[in-house]
Nucleic acid binder design. Structure first.
Lengths: 110, 110
DNA sequence: ATAACATATGAATAATTGTTCATATGTTCA
DNA sequence: TGAACATATGAACAATTATTCATATGTTAT
């Protein structure tokens, strides 16, 4: 029956998928890449570690905005901080970021 | 002077970055991955092409919700549709998707 | 200790976005 | 043609999120 076929496809597909919690986490992870300010921050950090006010100047936004977004990036383990005197220097934490960027760029430049 | 050093870093970094428009597009592209419903839809489509009501059953959401999200995925060229009678069969359009998923999963499973 | 600077954080606001309901469009078959 | 089904779409609502302002925290040097 067609109805059974439908049911089978649904059950079979569900059984092959990673568990739902993982996929929710995955979405939360990609959410971080879905904001242009954060994208530009990460992009700037490809070159070298930078302190907050440099980043703010590079992306052309308030220091406060940048601090908030850096916190988001920290929470997802995408950047790390190093304190040096009055300044906080941020750098990329994860080697997947570059590859994810590359994939994305390849896609949109097609 | 320290101030000049700052300025140099800012200008040099900016000059090495992709242009801003591209980075905004990139953010919009990743935005699509930042929703758990869309993530689960794409994940289901890794296995095989599926029609809308199968997808709705798999992700456990309204047909209408799924249709709306499929439109988003279509607009970013991530899925394609094939009409067969009353049904619309969706499949993945792009080979980058799998790699992006893999990178993301590797990151969150660390 | 205090002034000056860098960064972080809380609260408020504005904007974006996901979901649902209701309904329209498109397709098949009697 | 009309009934039944699959999908798409518009409007409304709820929820999330990015940004800003104001201010707190932390650090250095006088």
């Amino acid at each position: 029956m067609i109805h059974d076929a439908h049911k089978n496809i649904v059950e079979e597909t569900k059984s092959k998928m990673p568990n739902t919690d993982t996929l929710f986490e995955l979405a939360d992870f990609f959410k971080v890449f879905g904001d242009s300010t954060r994208i530009r921050i990460m992009c700037a950090l490809f070159e070298q570690e930078l302190n907050v006010c440099c980043i703010a100047d590079i992306v052309g936004m308030e220091q406060s905005t940048v601090s908030h977004q850096l916190r988001v990036l920290r929470q997802e383990n995408l950047v790390k901080v190093r304190r040096d005197g009055k300044q906080s220097y941020y750098s990329l934490e994860d080697e997947h970021i570059q590859k994810i960027f590359e994939m994305g760029l390849e896609h949109i430049l097609e």
